[in-house]
């Protein structure tokens, strides 16, 4: 009897780990995601190792060498104030990483709990939250961030807050949608039939089961955050100089675009690669782990 049962069990050892390990295998096979992962690793190394990789002050002007092309002394050349573009890109990576983490943090901390409550309780609570979300989603994300900056003012902190707020509705929608499916699962009903508190049901039974899409959205959201921050910086209403920020570097290089293209090109490439890395990885994660994309 016991033996039979064990045989039975082995055959059944099923769905979840298999799909988990299948997900990893799928992710490893996905070359684009792998490339994204490597790019991300390089980006993180640059951001975290900036003081080691570039000795000196990235904001120290050297007017004698302004706008010099790439050379031995200045690997990627210098900008209009003679500051090393390499140094500013490396330190800019730290700023953009900070922004990405901060923005996604704001989105997660507010969007996930609100989405959980909205989806789990439904009814009037859900209706009110969703209409509010609709209102926020009616603005294109960047426009909303722009409007918020206009209200809050410029600077690193306000950049993070305004882009973060513009991302909140995305998280609310995503989480709510996932909760709507998960809360209908029999195990949630079974937990309720055992008298489990709503808060515990949300924490133990629902949140862990909606984590995969949240992680995917987080990866994609970081890419968007960098892009938005660069956009605000480019317009001169994001992070303010002399803090090295890719968008504002691009903005000030605009004037020399024709004569000294390297000044704009390198920060542009940095933005491109950083955003690409998050998007490739995020897409790869989605293909591998999002049940909706699994056929």
């Amino acid at each position: 009897m016991t033996d039979r049962k064990n045989v039975d069990t082995d055959q059944n050892s099923g769905d979840n780990t298999v799909s988990g390990s299948r997900g990893w295998a799928k992710l490893k096979r996905n070359r684009a995601a792998l490339a994204g992962g490597i790019l991300l690793l390089i980006y993180l190394l640059c951001a975290l190792g900036a003081p080691v990789l570039f000795r000196g002050d990235p904001s120290a002007p050297d007017l004698m060498n302004s706008l010099s092309p790439p050379s031995g002394a200045y690997f990627l050349g210098t900008d209009e104030l003679g500051r090393s573009i390499l140094g500013r890109i490396l330190y800019g990576a730290r700023v953009s990483l900070l922004i990405a983490v901060g923005v996604v943090g704001v989105g997660l901390v507010i969007g996930v709990p609100v989405g959980l409550v909205s989806g789990y309780y439904g009814g009037k609570t859900d209706f009110i939250i969703q209409r509010f979300t609709d209102m926020m989603l009616a603005f294109p994300g960047f426009l909303l961030a722009l409007a918020l900056v206009a209200i809050l003012g410029v600077g690193l902190k306000n950049t993070v807050i305004s882009i973060g707020i513009s991302m909140i509705p995305l998280y609310i929608r995503l989480v709510r949608g996932c909760v709507l499916t998960v809360k209908e699962e029999v195990y949630v009903e079974a937990a309720r039939a055992c008298g489990t508190r709503d808060l515990n049901i949300i924490r133990h039974h629902i949140l862990p089961n909606v984590l995969a899409p949240i992680i995917i959205q987080t990866s994609l959201g970081m890419g968007t955050a960098i892009l938005f921050a660069a956009g605000l910086g480019f317009l001169g209403i994001g992070v303010q100089p002399p803090t090295p920020e890719w968008g504002s570097m691009l903005g000030s290089a605009r004037a020399y675009m024709m004569g000294k293209p390297h000044v704009a090109t390198f920060p542009g490439i940095a933005i491109f690669l950083a955003v690409l890395s998050f998007n490739l990885l995020g897409d790869g994660l989605r293909d591998a782990f999002d049940p909706r994309s699994r056929i």
Binding site: N16, Y187, H204, P208, N209
Partner: peptide, 12 residues
Amino acid sequence: FQEPMTSLNPIL
């Protein structure tokens, strides 16, 4: 419950 396959939380 009726469905033993779905009445336990897969991640606990």
